[in-house]
Amino acid sequence: MEALLDTIAPILAATLRVATPLILAALAGLFAERSGVVDVGLEGKMLAGAFAAAATATVTGSVWYGLGAAIGAASLLALLHAFACVTLRGNQVVSGMAINVLAAGLTATLALAWFRQGGQTPALPADARFPALPLPGAEWIAEIPLLGRLLVTVIGGHTAPVYIAFALVPVAAFLLWRTRFGLRLRACGENPAAVDSAGISVAKLRYAGVLIAGVLCGMAGATISTAQGAAFSTDMTAGRGFIALAALIVAKWRPWPVLWTCLAFGLLDALAIRLQGVPVFGVTVPVQAMQAVPYVLTVVLLAGFVGRAIPPRAAGVPYVKER
């Protein structure tokens, strides 16, 4: 039993860790798309956030300044996206992809130009990263037989962004379903004309949705480079933005299902890391195959296991007043 716990607990702890940027990014997509703006630029905004966080933390030595810079950089890209999609009524997918390309190129170039380490930022010292926070009262909880140790290992000892991400799920659910702002934002994603005719600005709401997405993507990026990692490296988000987008679809654009889906993807990822080079039933599964599982799972889930995922009806459609 003890031995089993010792195997499982670290995997579950890793699940929470790797799920964190996914949760933040998927919630970001949730706000943007609920407002009616499709956001395939989650990846790029995260990458920009990851770079801004690492670069700022390197220069200032403060991880919180890093987080602020990440939020700033990602929000700036979000603002660009909102300008293209809402003000100029451009194609939302094209704008999102453009942001991905822009972020990929810009971060690599700036990293090279400023730090001259082949596109990386210097390794951050421990005090310029998010520290692991011990669970309050961990020593007493650990006394509880079996469960206690599990709790302490799985839930305790994570960095601040992990706890923030999990706390943001109920916050998002409350904001979207229990407040005036949420009602209006969701209406905007379904029928913006109804919002407009009620005397509410569709553009403002969509800017708000996209900007919230920017803030959350910035946090996700900072998590990757200054909580999970200790530096920025080129393309370090590695498609997490797209996994988050897939999680959002599987979760049918709802906060709690977003959490469960991201945890499922996180578990797969944690397993993939854990099982690297470990023989399973006598066969050593190639790392690449394990890493591909979340993507394969996404396709399978989307192909029918979750039923039809109906996006907000007006998502992707610029709002133009009829004559």
Partner: peptide, 13 residues
Amino acid sequence: ENVMLGAEGGALL
């Protein structure tokens, strides 16, 4: 919800 949209009567529904 439709009737309230735009006339919610407060920041919290």
